[in-house]
Amino acid sequence: MAKYSEAFKLQVVQEYLDGPLGYSALAKKHAIPDAATVRKWVTFFQEFGLEGLKRKRKKTVYPVQFKVDVLHFMKETGASYSETAIAFGMNNPSLIANWNRAFQENGIKGLKPKQKGRPPMSRKPRKQPGKQAKSTSLSQEELERENELLRLEIAYLKKLKAFRENPDTFLEKHKQQWHTHSKKKDSN
């Protein structure tokens, strides 16, 4: 979409107001792709004067409630985007079209301002200690428990093997351990 200077817009609008040419003829004469552009310039000039033809250099941030009011007005009255923009003193009807689309897709959340740009980087990357420490300690606890179970299983299998190979020696050995432990307990 071509950007036109304020002087050029004013010239085209004056030609329309002073002369016999219509929107389409002026659009062809000045190589403007669409007659609706000329009609928009004329309408905004008639409503707002020279301010209606100026491009705004500063971005106006509209509150969510204002956007809702504009869309509600447009729905209730059946006004077009251009008529609604004029009613609310705006010279950019496409902004209202964007609000309407965002509202249709996302509801009120679509009308809220969005944060621009990338989030700032901190000097050191953030680590999430709660999540990482918790998962590390949990997995470490699980591994320790598994190791303990494996040690018990190995000890059990060794004793079982020793018992199967020579049951008398195994029982004699454990009887001696039992007597020494019981004597220690009795002496206290």
Rank of each mutant, 00 (worst) to 15 (best):
N147L: 11
E47H: 08
R55D: 04
F73W: 06
K112R: 15
G107Q: 05
L111K: 05
V13W: 00
M90Y: 00
N106S: 15
H72R: 13
R164G: 11
E47N: 05
R118Y: 14
G52Q: 02
T43V: 04
A27F: 04
A155S: 13
H72Y: 06
A7W: 05
S139C: 13
I96H: 01
K116P: 01
V38Q: 00
K116D: 02
S24R: 09
R126M: 13
F88L: 05
P167R: 08
L160D: 11
K127D: 06
L95F: 01
V64I: 03
E153C: 05
L152V: 08
K109G: 11
K158M: 09
R55H: 05
G78L: 04
F73G: 02
L95K: 03
K124D: 12
F48H: 03
F73H: 06
A31L: 09
L17C: 09
S137H: 10
Y23L: 04
P93E: 02
G107V: 09
H179Y: 14
P167A: 05
K114V: 12
R126E: 12
S135V: 13
R126C: 14
P120C: 13
E172P: 04
E148S: 14
G22C: 06
K173N: 12
H179K: 12
D69F: 04
Q104K: 15
Y81I: 00
S24T: 11
Q115T: 06
R118S: 08
I96A: 01
G110T: 07
P113Q: 11
I86E: 00
Y156E: 12
S94W: 00
D34E: 13
L149E: 15
V42L: 03
E51C: 02
Q46C: 05
F103I: 07
F45W: 03
K29R: 15
Q128P: 05
K109A: 13
K67I: 02
L149C: 08
K112E: 10
F163H: 05
V42H: 03
I86S: 00
E144M: 15
R57Q: 03
A102N: 07
K158V: 04
A87E: 07
P129K: 14
R55K: 13
F170Q: 01
F66M: 09
Q177P: 03
G78K: 03
M74A: 07
Q14W: 04
V70T: 06
K54W: 00
E148T: 12
E47Q: 09
Q176K: 09
G117Y: 05
Q128V: 10
F45T: 03
V42W: 01
A85Y: 00
E144S: 14
E165W: 06
A97E: 08
T136N: 15
M121R: 14
L53T: 01
T43E: 00
Q177I: 09
L10T: 03
Y156D: 08
N100D: 09
S80L: 03
G49T: 02
V68D: 07
M90C: 10
Q115P: 04
N147E: 11
L26W: 00
L138Y: 15
K116V: 09
E172G: 15
K3V: 11
P93V: 01
E51M: 00
V64T: 12
G117C: 10
K56T: 12
K56S: 10
P33Q: 07
P33N: 07
K28R: 11
P33A: 10
A36L: 09
